[in-house]
């Protein structure tokens, strides 16, 4: 019994005789069969990754020619899958622009239209449901989010004694999510938008753990997006359909805002609670808010320096 590990039979040596072979072969075959069986679910893996996609470099290392090829490839893939030819491009930041948003908590009535407009604009997965904006129904008299209600499902809003606080990516100037990413798959653009390269993200979800605003979403399965709901106006760093296993987030609708338009959440807001613009332009509406309203940011003590401001006005 004391010999489980000690070898004894060094006598038969490396040469295997015929009987041994006959005895051992079925065992080996059975092991291979068991291994193949264990791996058999992989037959459902579906579309495999092309060598080109596998070897694709980081966004910042792609030459203009590389980018052209990548965009063409993704355009074809989207068209094949959703039967819509997307207008996909790499929209780059504008010079002299830094974005910020402000949200008027006195106006917001918690109708959640921004949540759904965002999903429609940005081609998020409908199942499992991925939403970038979470609206909290807060009892008046507190800022403790633990007392907020996320899934209020009432006949009518606003309800007495409550205010409503939409939270999304705060586009921090000092973003903890960017700091922790082990592969620089997420970074801050010159215009302040924190972007993700969906083709570089390894899906470790460290950024999700680091974000103090619960603003990041992970594609736990392949995103389900009905073909008829696809928004074909797409940018590489924002609302193109995402692959399984990567993280995504609000990008201030960069496919719109970098072309001078307003983000979708702002345009749908029925009460006009949102203000958006370029903080480097002293005459912009957002600069006006920062100068004239008593704004605050969420979790200021963490030093994240959000570019997303909240304010109350009577």
């Amino acid at each position: 019994m004391a010999d489980l590990i000690t070898t004894r039979q060094t006598a038969d040596g490396p040469d295997m005789n015929r009987r041994d072979f006959l005895k051992k072969t079925p065992v080996a075959v059975a092991w291979v069969a068991a291994l193949a069986g264990a791996l058999s679910p992989l037959r459902n893996l579906g579309d495999t990754i092309s060598a080109e996609e596998f070897l694709q470099s980081h966004y910042k290392e792609l030459s203009p020619d590389d980018m052209k090829r990548v965009l063409a490839r993704i355009t074809d893939e989207v068209e094949r899958e959703y039967r819509v030819r997307p207008h996909l491009r790499d929209v780059t930041p504008m010079d002299g622009v830094q974005f910020a948003m402000a949200l008027n908590l006195t106006r917001c009535i918690g109708c959640r239209k921004c949540v759904h407009a965002c999903v429609e604009e940005n081609n998020q997965s409908r199942s499992p449901e991925i939403q970038y904006i979470r609206v909290l129904e807060m009892p008046q008299g507190t800022m403790d989010m633990e007392r907020g209600n996320h899934d209020y499902d009432v006949e009518q809003v606003p309800r007495d004694g409550h205010f409503y606080m939409p939270v999304q990516c705060q586009q921090c100037e000092n973003p903890p999510c960017v700091k922790v990413c082990p592969v620089e798959a997420t970074w801050q653009e010159p215009d302040g938008i924190v972007a993700v390269d969906y083709n570089w993200c390894i899906g470790c979800r460290y950024c999700e753990a680091a974000c103090p605003y619960w603003a990041r979403r992970f594609n736990f399965s392949k995103p389900e997006l009905p073909a008829e709901d696809v928004n074909p106006d797409m940018a590489y760093l924002s609302n193109r359909p995402r692959p399984k296993g990567v993280v995504e987030k609000c990008t201030f609708c960069l496919q719109r805002t970098r072309e001078g338009r307003y983000p979708a959440c702002l345009e749908v807001c029925p009460t006009g609670s949102r203000v958006f613009g370029n903080v480097l332009d002293p005459d912009s509406s957002i600069s006006y808010i920062l100068k004239n309203k008593r704004v605050f940011v969420l979790k200021e003590e963490l030093g994240t320096r959000p570019r997303f401001y909240y304010f109350f006005d009577s």
Partner: peptide, 22 residues
Amino acid sequence: MGRPDRLWHVMPLIGRLNWPQS
């Protein structure tokens, strides 16, 4: 990992390791 196929992105030198930040 959500994307084990991209493990090489973490490899020093061939990937793009966010060192010493991360």
